[in-house]
Every structure is written in C-alpha cells, then in structure tokens.
C-alpha cells in the first residue's frame, strides 16, 4: 500500500517558481491498480520523480506500508527505493548488459549470490513471457519485449509498489494491449499495489480499478473507475465515456438531452420507453457504450423535438433509473473543443 500526503514540488527557474505538484494526496491499496491521468505538463513526470525520490519533494510525505520514504537518507533511502519498482516509458535498459544481467542488476546491488540470482532471473523472465531472451542484448529486442524486461527488472526486488510511467506510450496498439494484459496479470501478486501514470484513456479503461485526474499539479478528481464514470458532469467521465463528436444541430430542431445509464439498465431500452411515455420521437444523435470494470455504461445524446418539454423527458428518464440532463449546446457550438 502506498499513501501520498500533500506532496508538493516547486521548481525554480531563475526567479520564477513552477509549482509542478501542489498538494497531491492519494492512496493505493495492495491488490489494486490506480491510474493517474493528465495532459502534458500536468505534473505526471514530476510525480514519478518525487514518488521514487529521484527528486526530493518540496513538502509532503510518501509512505509505503506506513514507512515514510521522504524521511530516509542515504543507505536507508536506497533500501526504501527498492520498495518501489519503477517501469519507464522507454524501458531504460542497460545496453551493455544482457537481458539476464539487466534483470539481475537490482539483485546484484543487494549482494545476492550468482546461483540464486540466476534462478530468480529465470523465474522473472518466465513471468513476463521471455523465458529464452536471457542471453540476448536489449538492442536485439522489440520495444514490447524491452518493456517486458523493464517490468521483470522492476519486480526483481519484490517491491510493494510497482510504478509505471507512461508504460505504453511508445508502443503500437497491439503491443500496448499485450503489455496491459501483463500488468493485469501482476495484480494478483501478493501485497503489490500498482500505480500507472498515463495520458491514454485506453490504459485506464482496460486495467485500472481507480483513477485520478491530475491537472496543473493538483488532483482534481479521483475515485473508483465505476464511480467517476457514472456522472454527467465529471471531467474523467467526459474523458473516459464522452459523447463522440457529432454534426452540429440545425437551429430550431430541438433540445439536446444527455442520458447516462449503467449496469443492467444500460441494456434496457430507456429511451424508447420515454419516447412512448412523452409521445414524441426522440432521436439518438451520438453516444458511447463501454464495458468498464465489469459494468456496462451507456452515454447517449438525444434530441427532443420542438413542442415537447425536455424537462418531462428528463423526468421520465430519471424515473427509469437513468441519469439525464439538458445539454445547453447552442447549435453552432464547437463540440469537443
């Protein structure tokens, strides 16, 4: 379990202060995968550097199983760092070492004997699906394979926290899915909390149990995936289950209503039912249906024709257990700006 409290990092650029992290707090229990999502410049890389103490936070605490890393120095800090396994975007393997020696590097540091190390490395390479790559050099491997080696190396010291910094941003979609499957398969490892930092919604949808939105150094939204998605206003909901772009409506063609339903209700014809109830033809303009964390979510945008009270439509939808709200888009407003 990792607990971050009020983590703040201020960089000084000449006389200017850059508050790259501003009071970040979060908790990731063992056995779960937490995603941190944010745009470029949000502070993701800074968060990774502060969590691993590659950079010292200006203020705040990083605790692993109750032990404060920020209080540790020198030898204690190096020991503490081994509690966090870090996987980089570009693997950052050592080109001068074979794959086996890359994975064995952290074991070398703790003085593990060669025979024991070899056995451990072989086991780790099996876990990441590269049992035969031990004697190869990093340059001989594909990007996806190198990332697997990076994961094996991060697992070598049996860390309590596995921290991924944009692990799939340099990979193609197919390889991305393979790596995400591997990360998911690690979820069962005893006592392991996983933290994935990314700007890809796909990564969050596929593997995360919970998610936080990092914006301008602050966590502005956070919660279990099924909760943050279940909202018509949230930015995470918008990002993960947003209405895809659609053609602007002609003026006078009606009012737009957004409808969100989840679980079993997502597969019942709530819109058709409401259509009958208010006696008007409701047209579905756009929508997305996603299966996230074992639950189906349906987010639809419908148009209510002139002459029908949109409030009645919203009431009828809500009565059926869906969430709905009138969307005040002026006809020419740019969608998904």
């Amino acid at each position: 379990m990792i607990t971050v409290t009020d983590l703040t990092k201020v960089y000084h650029q000449g006389r200017r202060e850059v508050r790259a992290l501003d009071g970040v707090s979060l908790t990731v229990p063992a056995g779960s995968i937490h995603g941190i999502i944010g745009h470029s410049g949000a502070g993701k890389s800074t968060l990774v550097r502060c969590l691993t103490l590659l950079d010292r936070p200006t203020a705040g605490r990083v605790e692993i199983n109750g032990v404060d890393l920020t209080a540790a120095h020198d030898a204690a800090l190096r020991t503490a760092r081994r509690r966090i396994g870090l996987v980089f975007q570009q693997a950052n393997l050592f080109d001068s070492r074979t794959i086996a020696d890359n994975v064995g590097y952290p074991l070398e540091l703790i003085g593990m004997k060669k025979a024991e190390r070899d056995a451990k490395v072989a086991e780790l390479l099996r876990v990441v699906g590269l049992p035969d790559s031990g004697p190869a050099y990093p340059a001989q491997l594909s990007g996806g394979m190198r990332q697997r080696v990076g994961i094996a190396r991060a697992l070598a010291t049996e860390p309590d926290v596995l921290l991924f910094d944009e692990p799939t941003s340099a990979l193609d979609p197919k390889t991305t899915d393979e790596i995400l499957d591997l990360i998911l398969s690690l979820k069962g490892r005893e006592g392991l909390a996983v933290l994935v930092i990314t700007h890809e919604m796909h990564v969050v949808k596929k593997i995360c149990d919970s998610v936080s939105l990092l914006d301008d150094g602050r966590i502005v939204e956070s919660g279990p995936l099924v909760e943050v998605v279940n909202s018509l206003d949230g930015r995470l909901a918008e990002a993960l289950l947003g209405i895809p772009p659609h053609a602007p409506l002609d003026a006078g063609s009606g009012t737009l209503v957004d409808v969100l339903s989840s679980g079993p209700k997502a597969s019942t014809p709530v819109v058709a039912h409401t259509s009958r109830e208010v006696g008007a033809e409701l047209n579905i303009i756009a929508g997305s249906v996603e299966h996230l964390a074992g639950t189906t979510f349906s987010h639809l945008r419908i148009s209510v024709p002139p002459g029908t009270d949109p409030e009645r439509v919203v009431e009828s939808l809500r009565a059926q257990g869906a969430d709905a709200k009138i969307t005040d888009l002026t006809p020419n407003e740019e969608l998904d700006a």
Partner: peptide, 9 residues
Amino acid sequence: KLDAAHAMG
C-alpha cells in the same frame, strides 16, 4: 539509464 540505476537503489 542513470535514473533507472538510482531508482533501483
């Protein structure tokens, strides 16, 4: 690579 070395202790 040096970050990786440090992060591993």
